[in-house]
Amino acid sequence: MEHHRSHIYGVMAEFDAPEQLIHAVEKTREAGYHRMDAYTPFPVEGLAHAMGLKRNMVPFITLLGGLAGGLGGFGFQYWAAAISYPQNIGGRPLNSWPAFIPVTFELTVLGAALCAVFGMLALNRLPQPHHPVFNVKRFVHATSDRFYLCIEARDPKFHVAETARFLQGLHPHHVTEVVYD
């Protein structure tokens, strides 16, 4: 068993249609498996729900980025105009805040957008040049027209033969073992 685990990442089933995959995910969860992932060529509606995924951290990170951009942007302008190099021009106020709004706004958007994108990539652990699922020959169809479910070896209930048999019972196109190389 231990020997298997070191070689095998999981067992993967291939489906033709998104509905079949959602159904398979539901069945797999009912059967008591938890460590699994589904792979689809486009975001399938209802699949995240079926997988039990709830919220993610991307919106929160984006909020932090926006706050940092906005507060930092305004703070910097205030500091530059009122503290670092104050210029008295006819007694006009140094902290002329309405004139600082356009730059503050742009930096809010910039900070939020950078955090949304790089936060998403970081949480997804991307870029990741290689992953065991790419060892499956047929997996190239995951970016075209096929839908995959992979039950991972780290699931406590995982057993190569039994899990493969279980997946066969869901009427997939194919069932393959996913091995580390």
Binding site: A38, P43, N56, V58, M120, N124, T143
Partner: peptide
């Protein structure tokens, strides 16, 4: 492609990020 593999967890965050970007790009 950064090693994109279409994982449902990835799509889940991807969709959040895309929606947020759309929301940010609109006032921008």
């Amino acid at each position: 492609a950064l090693g994109w593999r279409g994982s449902v967890r990835h799509w889940h965050r991807y969709q959040s990020a895309y929606l947020l970007l759309a929301g940010l790009a609109t006032p921008l």
